[in-house]
């Protein structure tokens, strides 16, 4: 499946070439993202960045550890609530508010993971979904979340106490920096020995156990890390949009992040980012067209599952590898 996990000395040059192509592509994307606010509305770009990080974090559990979580909205939206509350009511500075949201998501991830990893496969998906729905109902009822209104008019504050984030360009580059930080953490994790063990668990859990490792522990660490990074994305979004609302904790949101990852290609680094851009762009376009968004998102799911299960970049990678050999 994943060629990078079993690089033999013979295959090394090809893999290296693939890596350089990937590296060049990433550098190009980074350049584009730095210049992008000149051409495109920054708040829209911020939305893409937040969802790209969210999808990439989600991919860590689905694409690398092979765990289908149907409850990631709880981390994304839950962290948004905590960050918004911390910034608005506790008046914490930007960094601490984001940190509070991220830490909350990590703790929640640890709790969800501990429970859900006790059951395998399909049950894992159902348990995470049910747990996330519990968080949704709590968000509806707890007084601090503001019910249907959500937490509005969240102050953006200052980056490092100096840079005023009310300026949209400053906000954009801050979110860009945060997203890149998150993506680097994911990239480092995936390419570390830890990441290789995760892939091995996905391929053959019994064999990993037979090597004397404890798959549950690895899965739990990956799940918690993924939850924390999803929370980080949600926290950034709450500050940038100055809003935490129920939309971000619904099961539709959990479904959307699955679609982003599936569409772009699970188990690839760049796939979820591309998938997130496509889905956010599509929704932006559809929101003014009067077409039913939910229906079209559902249609994308069906088409993806039936026609190209490896996603855009998964298919591309397979095509490249086939043409090289």
């Amino acid at each position: 499946m994943n060629s990078t996990t079993m690089v033999s000395s013979l295959e090394a040059p090809r893999t290296r070439r693939l890596r350089t192509t990937g590296g060049l592509l990433l550098a190009l994307v980074a350049m584009l993202m730095i210049c992008a606010p000149l051409a495109i509305y920054p708040l829209f770009l911020i939305k893409i960045l937040c969802f790209a990080l969210f999808a990439a974090a989600f991919n860590l559990v689905l694409g690398y550890a092979g765990l289908l979580s149907f409850g990631h909205a709880a981390f994304f939206g839950g962290a948004a609530y905590i960050t918004a509350h911390a910034a608005k009511v506790w008046q914490l500075p930007f960094e601490l508010a984001v940190l509070a949201g991220t830490a909350f998501a990590a703790l929640l991830g640890l709790a969800f993971g501990t429970l859900a990893i006790r059951r395998h496969g399909i049950y894992f998906a159902m348990i995470t979904l049910a747990l996330a729905q519990m968080v949704y109902f709590m968000a509806v009822q707890m007084p601090f979340t503001g019910g249907e209104d959500g937490i509005q008019a969240v102050p953006r504050g200052y980056l490092l106490g100096i840079i005023d984030l009310r300026d949209i360009t400053a906000m954009y580059y801050t979110v860009l920096g945060g997203t890149i930080l998150g993506l680097v953490i994911i990239w480092r994790t995936v390419n570390s020995p830890f990441g290789h063990i995760l892939s091995a668990i996905r391929e053959n859990e019994t064999r990993v156990t037979s090597l004397g490792l404890k798959p549950e522990r690895y899965k739990l660490i990956a799940f918690t890390l993924s939850a924390a990074l999803s929370g980080f994305a949600g926290a950034l979004k709450a500050i940038a949009f100055q809003l935490a609302s129920l939309v971000d904790v619904t099961w539709h949101m959990s479904g959307e992040v699955i679609l982003m990852t599936l569409l772009g290609g699970m188990g690839t680094l760049i796939g979820p980012i591309a998938g997130a851009s496509i889905v956010v762009g599509l929704e932006h376009f559809l929101s003014t067209s009067g077409l039913p968004i939910t229906f079209i998102i559902g249609l994308f799911f069906v088409v993806c599952v039936m026609m190209f299960r490896r996603g855009l970049f998964g298919e591309l990678k397979a095509l490249l590898e086939r043409s090289r050999s």
């Binding site: 479904g255 559902g298 249609l299 799911f301």
Partner: peptide, 10 residues
């Protein structure tokens, strides 16, 4: 599971 999820959304 994902297919039936898509059908539900549709």
């Amino acid at each position: 599971l994902l297919l039936t999820f898509g059908i539900a959304l549709m």
